[in-house]
């Protein structure tokens, strides 16, 4: 018996959104499987509009959308019990302390007070909030606000979470922590995550599916694995010394190779994995500090998609 394909968590059919004469979403067609989904695009591409249309925060001009197999237009309210959303901007309910706020958000999704209070504490623990939870949200730092936003988005145990730029304004340590938390939601708990970001590195770290959107149109929708497979013949090598020996060896094998300003050597070896590079290094008796297969694939795919989009426009 062949396994059946999982039901798409997100479907859009000719989904269109216009603001007056401006078309923010232009007949978007999508079928997205459960997973960690990265929504990429430049500013004003339509990422946030797509999320808001799916959550019914914006009325759809034309087309249809389904979330978790249910019609967004018909079942929006009940559907949102199973959906979490952390918006980009600060929009906390004023004069509430963190714990009270997360409890209230859980109650708005149908949890009883006791359950909501218990869940709120669990989620605040999960996102790494300590005693700050008893302070007014207005006094929080950007990092704390992002954590509370994440807590309120998952407090009601949704099946899918939309996160709009969740690492905005965070320091490197905070960014890593938030990304790690988001990563565990799908990997360990099966909660699909739609992560909208313009930070390609964030998406590369935690997402297994990529949607690139620009000018209201979906340019790329594929798994990260497939995108990387398209550029498997490239690797980035970091060496502590004897870079010239490596460059000479590459020239002998007629592999194009160049050094970037940060000292990393980028080589087009043409293989399906990094084995040819390892063989070459063994041959010239060099120990690399790091080998990155298919480096910057996301960035290159992104730029390529944008260039194609501009050329078409």
């Amino acid at each position: 018996m062949t396994p059946t394909a999982p039901t798409p968590v997100l479907e859009a059919a000719r989904l269109t959104k216009r603001y007056g004469r401006v078309t923010a979403l232009d007949a978007v067609d999508l079928q997205v499987r459960p997973g960690a989904i990265g929504l990429l695009g430049p500013n004003g591409a339509g990422k946030t509009t797509l999320m808001k249309c799916l959550l019914q925060l914006q009325p759809i001009t034309d087309g249809h959308a389904r979330l978790l197999g249910r019609d967004v237009a018909r079942e929006g309210r009940e559907l949102r019990k199973l959906v979490g959303f952390a918006p980009e901007q600060d929009c906390h309910i004023p004069r509430m302390v963190g714990c009270e706020y997360v409890t209230y958000c859980a109650q708005l999704c149908g949890l009883t007070f006791q359950a909501a209070r218990q869940r709120a504490h669990e989620m605040l623990d999960f996102v790494g909030m300590g005693q700050e939870r008893y302070r007014e949200i207005g006094t929080y730092s950007t990092g704390m606000k992002q954590r509370v936003k994440l807590a309120q988005a998952i407090v009601h145990d949704p099946q899918i979470v939309f996160l709009d730029e969740p690492t905005n304004g965070l320091d490197p340590k905070g960014r890593v922590q938030i990304l790690e938390l988001v990563h565990t939601l799908w990997r360990e708990h099966g909660i699909s995550v739609v992560l909208s970001s313009h930070l390609l590195h964030d998406v590369d770290q935690i997402c297994d599916q990529i949607i690139i959107i620009a000018q209201g149109r979906v340019l790329v929708h594929d798994t990260l694995e497939n995108l990387k497979a398209r550029r498997r013949g490239t690797a980035e090598v970091v060496l502590a010394h004897r870079q010239n020996d490596f460059l000479t060896a590459c020239q002998r094998r007629q592999w194009p190779c160049d050094a970037s300003p940060n000292g990393r050597l980028r080589v087009d070896h043409g293989g399906t994995d990094v084995t040819p590079v390892l063989e070459l290094l063994r041959e010239i008796q060099l120990v690399p500090l790091e080998i990155v297969p298919s480096p910057n694939v996301l960035e290159e795919t992104f730029l390529h998609a944008l260039e194609t989009s501009h050329a078409t426009a």
């Binding site: 309210r77 949102r80 600060d90 929009c91 309910i93 958000c105 708005l108």
Partner: peptide, 21 residues
């Protein structure tokens, strides 16, 4: 008023309620 000022309407709308609720 306060919800308009803090844009909390967005948070309310993302929960299992409509704006009329």
């Amino acid at each position: 008023t306060r919800d308009l000022g803090s844009k909390a309407i967005l948070i309310y709308s993302s929960k299992a309620i409509t704006r009329w609720d």
